[in-house]
Design a protein around this nucleic acid. Structure first.
Length: 228
DNA sequence: GGCCAGGACACCA
DNA sequence: TGGTGTCATGGC
């Protein structure tokens, strides 16, 4: 398969089909940018359901603000987020981010997100506890910057379609999307959200879901071979 | 009771 | 550079 136009057409066609099938998802499920960031950290390797319980606990304790979280005892945060698994590590990660925000940007998310996307991404990746997926979630969903998010669902989706090279790295998959789609925040936002919706709510409830089959699929596509 | 769920990191060969 | 162990809850 030729690279370039074919890839772009395929990726856009899949997106349009997903959008037509499910409608806009309008992510991220949070009310503030800080809540998005906290959610991105808490959902690491855990279901959104468990992360949401932790977020609600933080909200009840009025800790869902950078300043109050920074001041709060580490143990209090850990207790609030127990449902999110690995809560001791995640409490440290939240504290680390709040400290970074306070020291580097006077606690202002406006100042932080004013920074160039790639520079900010590197800064976030330097923080202990923030990896590539979490950094991209923060950039896209909280900062409204065009950084495509690759998560377990994205990898599963590509694998089920037979689109992804087996064992493709995070960077390879991210590059695939970013080099073959218009750099558009809304598009990246919806694309990732639609993939999650499809994998989590549709395929999960219907194990026989046709999209998981290479030969026939419920979105009306039949692909063969990797496009990476 | 076992398995899985929207990672990240340290350590080792 | 890639593989593996660690972290350690809640729902089904």
């Amino acid at each position: 398969m030729k690279r370039g136009k074919v890839e772009r057409k395929s990726l856009l066609a899949i997106y349009n089909r997903l959008l037509r099938s499910y409608g806009p998802r309008e992510w991220w499920p949070a009310k503030t940018r800080f809540e998005v960031i906290v959610g991105a950290i808490l959902t690491q390797n855990v279901s959104w359901h468990n992360a949401k319980i932790a977020i609600n606990n933080l909200k009840r304790k009025e800790l869902l603000l950078p300043k109050s979280m920074l001041k709060a005892p580490y143990r209090q945060i850990a207790n609030c987020i127990k449902s999110s698994r690995f809560y001791n590590q995640k409490a440290k990660k939240l504290k680390t981010f709040c400290r970074y925000l306070a020291l580097k940007y006077d606690g202002s998310l406006d100042k932080m997100f004013f920074k160039d996307m790639n520079l900010l991404r590197n800064e976030l990746l330097d923080l202990k506890g923030i990896g590539k997926e979490t950094a991209d979630c923060i950039l896209l969903y909280a900062g409204k910057k065009p950084s495509f998010v690759v998560d377990a669902y994205t990898k599963r989706f590509l694998a089920r379609y037979g689109l992804g090279k087996e064992g493709a790295s995070y960077d390879e998959i991210r590059r695939l999307f970013m080099e073959n789609l218009p750099k558009n925040v809304y598009l990246y936002n919806e694309y990732h959200a639609l993939i999650v919706h499809h994998c989590h709510f549709v395929c999960k409830s219907k194990p026989q879901c046709a999209i998981c089959s290479v030969n026939q699929n419920c979105l009306g596509f039949t692909f063969s071979g990797s496009i990476i």
